[in-house]
Computed example of a mutant assay.
Amino acid sequence: MTLTPELFFLTLVVLATALMWVPYVVARVLGQGLGRTLANPAASNPPLPAWAQRARQAHANAIENLAVFAPLVLVAHAVGAGSPATVFAAQLYLGARLAHYVVYAAGIPGVRTLAFLCGSAATLVFAWVLLARV
Rank of each mutant, 00 (worst) to 15 (best):
R36F: 10
V111Y: 04
Y101S: 01
A99I: 07
A81T: 13
G35T: 09
S83R: 10
N65A: 07
V25C: 04
G31Y: 00
A50W: 01
V87I: 13
A50T: 02
A55Y: 01
W51M: 04
G107N: 05
V25F: 08
L19E: 02
V102A: 15
H77N: 05
A27E: 00
P84D: 06
N65S: 10
A42S: 14
S120P: 04
F69E: 01
M20F: 11
G95A: 14
G107R: 07
G119F: 05
A58D: 03
A85M: 12
V111E: 06
G31Q: 02
V129T: 15
G95K: 09
R112E: 07
L72T: 13
W51T: 01
L72W: 01
N40Q: 13
H77T: 03
T37S: 15
L66V: 11
V29I: 15
A58M: 06
V79T: 01
V73W: 12
A105E: 03
P46E: 12
L117V: 14
V87C: 01
W128H: 09
L124Q: 00
F116I: 10
G82E: 13
Q91I: 14
G110L: 15
Y24P: 03
T37D: 05
F116N: 05
A81W: 07
A76P: 15
L114I: 12
S120T: 14
P47T: 01
A18Q: 07
R133P: 02
L74S: 03
V79G: 06
A60T: 09
V125W: 06
P41F: 00
A27Q: 06
V102H: 02
P23V: 10
H100Q: 09
A90F: 09
G80Q: 15
A122I: 04
A121R: 03
V129H: 09
A55F: 06
A115D: 05
L94M: 13
A76W: 02
A27K: 11
G82N: 12
L48S: 12
T113S: 14
